[in-house]
Amino acid sequence: MNHEKFINKQRLRRRRHNRKKIRGTAERPRLNIFRSNAHIYCQLIDDERGVTLASASTRDKDLRSDAAGGNCDAAAAIGKAIAGKAAAAGVTQVCFDRGHYRYIGRLAALADAAREAGLQF
């Protein structure tokens, strides 16, 4: 078996395992995280209606200056931004969906900043 295929299968298995337990509602949407090498993205998703309530990323024009690139400082800025957008949408509690990523580094920085800014999960 090709090593790359094996790694991808393991990653998909971990993602399915985590997503099986997490479901976003209007009162408690799912905070979904996507992390690439260069950027980090997050969305608040209501799975019942299938809509995105708010999103933030390092590629947003208003966040590009303080959230440059894919480091922990940028992730913290995105965490604060998504918490602010969630408050504007009337959301205080979320379900944290880390996907297949481990809870370290940029992911932990984003989650900690979102908690400090007022999101509960």
Rank of each mutant, 00 (worst) to 15 (best):
A76P: 01
E116D: 15
L53A: 00
R19G: 03
T92V: 10
T25D: 05
I7A: 09
Y41Q: 07
T52W: 09
A117H: 09
G24W: 02
T92D: 09
A68S: 11
A56S: 12
I78A: 03
K61P: 08
L110M: 13
N8A: 15
G24S: 03
R28S: 04
K85H: 07
Q93G: 04
A114L: 05
M1E: 11
D112I: 06
C42A: 11
E4C: 05
A113C: 08
L12K: 14
R28D: 01
A77T: 08
K80Q: 15
Y101A: 14
A67T: 02
N37K: 11
A67V: 02
T25C: 06
L31C: 04
R30M: 01
G50D: 04
R30G: 01
D112K: 15
R98A: 06
I22R: 02
N37A: 11
Q120W: 09
M1T: 10
G70P: 01
N32H: 12
I22F: 01
Y103P: 00
A83T: 02
I22T: 01
R59D: 12
E48M: 11
H39A: 06
Y103F: 13
M1V: 10
A26H: 09
K9W: 13
Q120V: 15
I40K: 06
H39S: 08
R102L: 14
I78R: 02
L53I: 13
H100N: 13
G99E: 04
A117E: 12
A88P: 01
A108T: 07
A83Y: 04
Y101N: 15
I45R: 01
D97K: 03
T92Y: 00
A89R: 14
K85E: 02
N37V: 06
V51Q: 13
D112A: 15
A117M: 08
N37M: 09
C42T: 13
G50S: 07
G70H: 04
L107D: 01
T25F: 05
D97A: 02
D73W: 08
A77Y: 00
F96H: 10
D46Q: 08
I82R: 02
L44W: 06
L31M: 14
G105Q: 08
A74T: 03
T52H: 13
A113W: 07
R59H: 09
L12G: 03
F96G: 00
R23Y: 13
E27Q: 11
T92W: 06
I7F: 07
G84R: 10
G50P: 00
L107I: 15
A83P: 00
H100I: 08
F6H: 14
A108M: 10
N18Q: 11
N71V: 01
R49H: 13
K5I: 10
G99S: 06
L53S: 01
A89D: 10
F96A: 11
T92N: 10
A68V: 09
G50T: 04
H100G: 15
A111S: 13
A88D: 14
A108N: 12
A81H: 05
D46L: 07
N32P: 04
Q10V: 07
L63N: 03
G105W: 09
A67W: 02
L44R: 03
S55L: 11
A114D: 06
D60F: 08
I45M: 05
K85G: 00
I33L: 15
I7V: 14
L53N: 03
R64S: 12
Q93S: 13
R15Y: 07
E4F: 12
R64H: 10
